[in-house]
Write a protein that binds this DNA or RNA. Structure first.
Lengths: 118, 118
DNA sequence: ATTATATATGAAAATATGCTCATATGTTTA
DNA sequence: TAAACATATGAGCATATTTTCATATATAAT
């Protein structure tokens, strides 16, 4: 004999709103993808990398110099940005040049900047 | 007698690009603000809260029911979103109704959604 | 071939984050 | 005034994230 419904024992004040939210909710994988995408921007180091690459492509050691952090740290962050498909690279000799994968990236950053400047 | 320059011992391949990046760089406090702003979107629970509030205002227990997480957890996340000025609330009796602070919030979410759907 | 350069990567340490639990606050109702 | 309800909050735990350090890989130069 259970004391409560085992699924959700929360009181619901507005059934309709909860239902509405459920109906328009994104699928779990979309939410996961979206939050991953935003995670890329959610760290000062990565955000500075993104901003720097808006201008022109840069190599790892340029970025390390600009950011004043270790090349290893930059490389780890770039891997993350690569996995999230926000940056791509091209090799020229021993140097890898990184650039932004597409312009949604800059546009999102620009829009957010507007927000915080208001 | 130091072995290296104590500021930055990185080799720089493209002085000009590093310089360019430095010149167009945002101030430290803007970078901090921006990354904080994005941090709000970088968690599935908060993202779902934001999406739910795009439709209409909701109270804490509605959100808890929709998200199927504890009201305490929702409340903690709402505090964070409040501190980041992404949501505001209004009290009606003992119920607090939350809504998005402005429409930059939805626009950023929408733009990012376009990105991941491509 | 050997050495140097540019970057990548795994493991571990330092830190940050998200949730739970217990308790506190503010509002309404009895 | 007391009890009930909606929400807030601090402390602590579990997990995740970011960096460092040591080492590995790929390309170029000697």
């Amino acid at each position: 004999m259970e004391k409560y419904d085992d699924r959700c024992q929360c009181r619901i004040i507005h059934e309709d709103r909860v239902g509405g939210a459920r109906r328009k909710a994104l699928r779990a994988d979309e939410i996961e993808g979206l939050s991953q995408f935003f995670k890329a921007f959610a760290d000062p180091t990565r955000l500075r990398i993104i901003r720097a690459l808006e201008e022109e492509e840069m190599c790892v050691c340029d970025l390390a110099a600009f950011l004043e952090v270790s090349e290893s740290a930059v490389s780890h962050q770039l891997r993350l940005l690569r996995q999230l498909k926000l940056v791509v690279n091209r090799r020229q000799g021993q140097v890898l040049y990184y650039r932004l994968a597409d312009d949604h990236v800059s546009r999102v950053a620009e829009l957010a900047l507007e927000h915080i400047r208001e």
